[in-house]
């Protein structure tokens, strides 16, 4: 287990470096005729460093542990919740979305006390609204 983490990430960076160098960069960086530093100079150097260091890492591993699978899963859940939340903001606006996002996040964290959930649902968005719209005179997303 301990060595697999570095082997896996090292190998990933080799693949990433190769993909960047041979596919992504040629298609997404313009070429120029003359100059001192070309648009592709630094990116190509980065790709080569990734390939070389990634390859070395697959051999010269460290004792890298990974978080348990449950934690990865939970992180993914929160990331998904946040993405959904931002999508919701883009559709109905922050003021309507926030009272849904906040308690949803709190429930996922494990909060079950109604009082706190209610505070998260109403107080937090209201405070942000007061702070941003009234005090700072900016519009909410």
């Amino acid at each position: 287990m301990t060595k697999t983490a570095d082997r896996a990430s090292g190998a990933l960076f080799v693949v990433l470096g190769l993909a960047l160098y041979f596919y992504v960069f040629p298609n997404n960086i313009e070429t120029v005729d003359s100059g001192w530093v070309y648009p592709s100079t630094i990116p190509n150097a980065v790709a080569i460093v990734l390939i070389v260091c990634g390859a070395i890492l697959t051999v010269k591993t460290t004792q890298q542990g990974l978080p348990p699978a449950r934690e990865f899963g939970m992180a993914l859940v929160f990331l998904a919740l946040l993405s959904l939340g931002i999508w919701l903001v883009s559709v109905v606006g922050f003021l309507l979305a926030a009272p849904i996002i906040a308690p949803a996040l709190m429930l996922a964290i494990g909060e079950r006390r109604l009082l706190w959930l209610a505070l998260g649902c109403f107080a937090t968005p209201a405070l942000i609204w007061f702070f941003v719209v009234q005090l700072l005179d900016r519009s909410l997303p």
């Binding site: 570095d6 960076f13 960047l20 992504v24 960069f25 997404n28 960086i29 313009e30 120029v32 100059g35 001192w36 530093v37 070309y38 648009p39 630094i42 990116p43 980065v46 460093v49 990734l50 260091c53 990634g54 070395i56 890492l57 010269k60 460290t62």
Partner: peptide, 29 residues
């Protein structure tokens, strides 16, 4: 790990190179 440090720095530089390049102003990545 020296090599993991260098990879982290390389990734940072990669993120930094997104956007117009400073000499030719070409839209990059």
């Amino acid at each position: 790990s020296l090599f993991k440090g260098i990879i982290a720095a390389a990734l940072g530089l990669l993120a930094a190179s997104i956007g117009a390049d400073p000499e030719h102003y070409t839209p990059r990545l």
